[in-house]
Amino acid sequence: MIPVNEPLLNGNEKNYLLECIETGWISSEGPFIKRFETEFAQRFGRKHAVAVANGTAALDIAIEALDIGPGDEVIVPAFTIISCLHQIVRAGATPVLVDSCPLTWNMDVNQIESKITPKTKAIMAVHIYGLPVDMQPLLELAQKHGLKVIEDAAEAHGQTYNGKPCGSFGDISTFSFYPNKHITTGEGGMVVTDDDELAEQARGLRNLCFQPAKRFVHERLGWNYRMTNMQAALGVAQLERLDEFIQRKREIGGLYSELLNNLPGVQLPLMQTEYAQNIFWVFGLVLDESLGLTAEQAMQRLAGQGIGTRPFFCPMHLQPILRNMGFFNNETYPVAENLYRFGFYIPSGLALTNAQIEEVAHVCREILQ
């Protein structure tokens, strides 16, 4: 089986982890935490970086720090992972959906303004699968209407928009370090911002809102969303190699694009847009309905040939839990629905070899042609 993702951990990861063990700094206290935060903030052009337990934790903290709650609306893409909506819903706010651009698979920024109401408090931009959201018109809308911007850069480590790092655009931005990300700490995440107050809130919210003077007296509810020193050690080692990882991801994407070029009825990822070159966090395929094959059927056939795959996101308006809660009744988002029904991605992890890429492409051609 060729796995859909396998991380690359052959740099300083082992040395830094041994340092944690030998010094006894294995919990959320330890020097690698501060080092990772400092170096990450510098790399992504932010004043503050706050390391947390995972990418979902980062989103939870971002929404709570912006005081989003009952009566508020947050505009989000219909095509994303459900963790983007968790804290919005739990806080009593209302997610408002925007459909996708069929070429980039990101939220269609041309649809945002029609969704803005007096209740709108924020827009959440989620960079999807390797290309960034078209941020300039989104930022202009946010400024025009006095809205906050939450930027989810979980899938965009090292990506840029018009030369500026993704993760540097939001009032508050978030990252994930799950094993399939360009930087992994196993589990882990980061909240970044230039706002001193938001950063201070994030630090408190990740740590149960302990108070410096009266540690066990709480005036606010937070979470235990701390990152461990061992996770941060992995993050430092991975961050050292981010440019190398981006180059390799683009090589993988370029080779797949060459090998799968002109495959009838199959949409490949865009190599670039006017504002960004794809970093191919994953290499997705979207089948044309004329093939008579859904993504699920194609994935089953590929699995039979030893090729790992993963489906595209199920759109938010089709999520049973959200529909049962009364959200998105009678709403339809055709591009997101099409991506879900006919989209999936093939192996593209950093440990993938060129020989494996060629094998995957060969099997894809046999099955999809």
Rank of each mutant, 00 (worst) to 15 (best):
I367D: 07
F36W: 10
Q369K: 13
N110F: 07
R215M: 15
L131E: 03
V52K: 04
F40M: 08
A122G: 12
G326P: 14
T184M: 11
Q305K: 04
G284T: 01
H182S: 15
R341W: 00
A295N: 04
R206S: 12
M135Y: 04
D194E: 09
A93K: 12
K144P: 06
E359F: 00
L138H: 10
V4E: 13
A355F: 00
P264W: 00
L221G: 13
R203H: 13
R301F: 05
E200G: 05
E366P: 13
S28M: 09
E39S: 11
A276Y: 12
A202F: 02
E274F: 10
M299Y: 14
A49S: 08
A276R: 04
V89L: 08
K181P: 03
I26M: 15
V217C: 14
A213R: 15
S348V: 03
V50P: 08
L85F: 13
R226N: 12
N224R: 04
T184H: 12
E331I: 01
P132A: 05
M124E: 07
T273V: 04
A298F: 12
I68Q: 06
R203F: 10
C101T: 01
C20Y: 09
R250L: 09
L239D: 11
A233R: 13
L97D: 05
F342W: 07
N278Y: 12
F32I: 00
N224Q: 04
P132Y: 06
E359N: 04
E331N: 03
F283S: 09
M230W: 00
E13S: 07
D195I: 01
L263D: 05
A336Y: 01
I116Q: 05
Q300L: 11
E359P: 00
M190P: 09
G24T: 12
A122Y: 14
K181G: 03
C101W: 00
E64R: 15
L205M: 12
G92E: 09
Q42N: 07
P347G: 10
T185E: 11
W281R: 14
N10K: 00
T193M: 06
C209P: 08
W105R: 07
L268H: 06
G55K: 05
E331W: 02
N207S: 15
N162P: 00
G304Y: 04
P70E: 06
V282I: 14
H145N: 09
R248E: 11
I307T: 04
M316H: 01
L287F: 06
F210R: 13
L59T: 04
G304F: 02
V52R: 08
F169A: 04
G146L: 07
F216K: 13
V89W: 12
W105H: 12
E240P: 15
A361V: 03
Q277L: 03
E244W: 14
D195F: 04
A154E: 03
Y340E: 02
A78E: 03
S28R: 08
H48F: 11
R46L: 06
E258C: 13
T80Y: 07
L97F: 05
I123V: 14
K144I: 00
A154F: 03
I61D: 05
W25D: 15
M135T: 01
T120C: 13
L9Y: 04
S257G: 15
V4D: 13
Y16N: 14
P212Q: 10
L59I: 01
M230E: 10
E366D: 13
E151Q: 10
Y161S: 03
P347K: 08
V52H: 05
A303L: 12
E331L: 03
G30Y: 08
T273D: 02
